[in-house]
């Protein structure tokens, strides 16, 4: 319902289209990419031109002669897969903790909130660097690091929502009926918190994608030769003054994905605001 109302806004619809395109790239990378992203041909072919063997490289090739367009399309798979997975685990942890803290309050809340405060006292990037430096960089460690860093923020949102919803009389009604705590959290509180959480999830997938990008850019991302947007920027940076297209295209890719998610989130937020007004 809310989604349909959101998509009536041109900006949100545009955002959704961008997101769908990137997800499609991730799902059907093998079909969509013109070349194998790992195979080297001619190095540093400029965009929109052909290599010596007559092959057309729409976005050019990198210094190892790999097709940039194909690497971007396969890079979408990396980003969508790991960002999605990492955000999902972060959400599981954040929701469980947030519901418990917001429903039970008291000591449970104090302990969990303190833990969240401690983690949130780190600049996110410092936290990532600490974790990746200690554990080494791999997809699983990125998921772990993102969960560790994002779960407290999700925890705070869910906790605040749970406290607010907990005050509503339908929750009081359930309590006076002798309904069990778990059922109240799952059937009364959580479903009524989904609106803001969906909006947040949209943005958070984007932030996680950016984080993976930043880690790649810092050389702490997925080990090569995995096609990854951030790593592409890192690799191309040395030659960016001569061949700016090496870095511009991956930057456009990550920015467009985040923009799409932001516009979609904005549309959803506005639509649910209108919905609650009507």
């Amino acid at each position: 319902m809310t989604l349909f109302r959101a998509l009536r806004r041109p900006t949100a619809a545009f955002g959704a289209v961008v997101v769908v395109i990137w997800v499609a790239c991730a799902l059907f990378a093998g079909l969509l990419a013109p070349y194998d992203p790992l195979i080297s041909t001619t190095a540093l072919v400029e965009p929109f031109s052909r290599g010596p063997d007559g092959k057309l490289f729409l976005l050019g090739t990198d210094m190892l002669g790999r097709d940039i367009l194909s690497r971007l399309i396969f890079g979408a798979r990396t980003v969508v897969l790991w960002a999605g997975l990492a955000t999902a685990t972060a959400y599981v942890v954040g929701i469980v903790g947030g519901l418990a803290a917001g429903f039970y309050r008291g000591a449970v809340d104090q302990i969990l909130s303190f833990a969240a405060n401690v983690i949130l006292s780190f600049p996110v990037l410092v936290l990532y660097i600490l974790i990746i430096v200690t554990l080494g960089s791999s997809g699983a460690n990125i998921v772990l690091a993102v969960t560790f860093a994002s779960a407290p923020a999700i925890f705070r949102i869910v906790r605040a929502l749970a406290i607010e919803i907990r005050e509503q009389d339908f929750v009081n009604a359930a309590i006076t009926q002798g309904e069990g705590a778990i059922r109240i959290m799952l059937f009364d509180i959580l479903p009524n918190a989904t609106g803001p959480l969906v909006v947040d999830a949209c943005l958070r997938v984007g932030y996680t994608a950016i984080t993976i990008g930043i880690l790649g850019f810092l050389g702490l991302g997925l080990p090569p030769p995995t096609p990854d947007w951030g790593t592409m920027v890192n690799e191309g940076r040395a030659m960016a003054m001569v061949f700016p297209y090496l870095v511009i295209f991956p930057c456009l890719a990550i920015s467009s994905l985040m923009l799409g998610l932001s516009l979609l989130a904005d549309g959803l937020r506005e639509a649910s605001r209108e919905g609650s007004r009507a």
């Binding site: 950016i210 930043i214 920027v233 930057c251 923009l259 516009l263």
Partner: peptide, 14 residues
């Protein structure tokens, strides 16, 4: 929305 969607390393590139 646009400026907050562009990560720092990308706006640095642009």
């Amino acid at each position: 929305v646009v400026t907050t969607s562009v990560p720092e390393f990308a706006s640095a590139v642009f």
